[in-house]
Design a protein around this nucleic acid. Structure first.
Length: 203
DNA sequence: TGAACGATTTCCT
DNA sequence: GGAAATCGTTCAA
């Protein structure tokens, strides 16, 4: 049984499941926000048509081709930032999208960033919401998550009893191979986002 | 150099 | 359930 953080080097779907329950933490001058991951998606590099890295190495996807344990941040729909944990061996270009989580620390700060009318369960519900709650954007692209820095990924602990099981299904919003079941979530958790199929899905 | 396209969110009906 | 907001990335010419 591989230990943390060696678990990041395995096959992407396995790594994605492993990351459920882990904590993503950001210490900023404003304070700390810590989020427990409840929903993730695997993206498999060169063999996955839905992955940004599928068409090969570009300036944007450079980080994905590097060593595991770094953060890959991309800009979405002209207004949102989403974050992935780079996984797999160096050069493999696989990553796990952090889709949703529960805010464990810094609820007030997260709400200040997200808006006063956002409910607790929705603070980090959705990939762009999660990044906004953490206060992360393009400036965090490429940062190491395992070096004890301001942005860190930590193994989950002490809450295994709260897990009912892991659900799996198709990824949200992808148009290529829309049925590949590489989305994983903690069953029954209210912070998991709702599924939406891409209107342009082709198969 | 130009244009289509999103790994989305929010607000309206 | 549906549409608008908004711009970097990518591919075609």
């Amino acid at each position: 049984m591989p230990g943390w953080p060696d678990a990041l080097a395995g096959d992407v779907p396995d790594v994605a499941r492993t990351l459920l329950g882990a904590r993503i933490v950001h210490d900023s001058p404003e304070g700390r926000v810590a989020v427990r991951l409840t929903e993730v998606e695997a993206y498999g590099g060169l063999t996955d048509p839905a992955s940004h890295a599928w068409r090969g190495r570009t300036p944007r996807t450079e980080v994905m081709f590097g060593p595991p344990g770094r953060l890959y941040v991309y800009f979405s729909y002209g207004m949102h930032w989403c974050g992935n944990v780079v996984t797999g061996p160096d050069g493999h270009a696989s990553a796990v999208l952090m889709r949703a989580g529960r805010v464990l620390e810094g609820v007030d700060l997260a709400r200040a960033r997200r808006g006063p009318r956002v409910t607790d369960r929705s603070l980090a519900r959705g990939p762009a919401c999660l990044m906004q709650a953490l206060g992360l954007d393009r400036g965090a692209d490429g940062v190491g998550l395992l070096d004890g820095g301001a942005v860190r990924l930590e193994p989950g602990e002490g809450d295994a009893d709260r897990v009912d099981g892991v659900g799996a299904g198709p990824r949200v919003g992808v148009s290529r191979e829309p049925d590949r079941p590489w989305r994983f979530w903690l069953s029954g958790d209210e912070t998991v986002s709702s599924y939406k199929r891409s209107p342009r899905a082709v198969r």
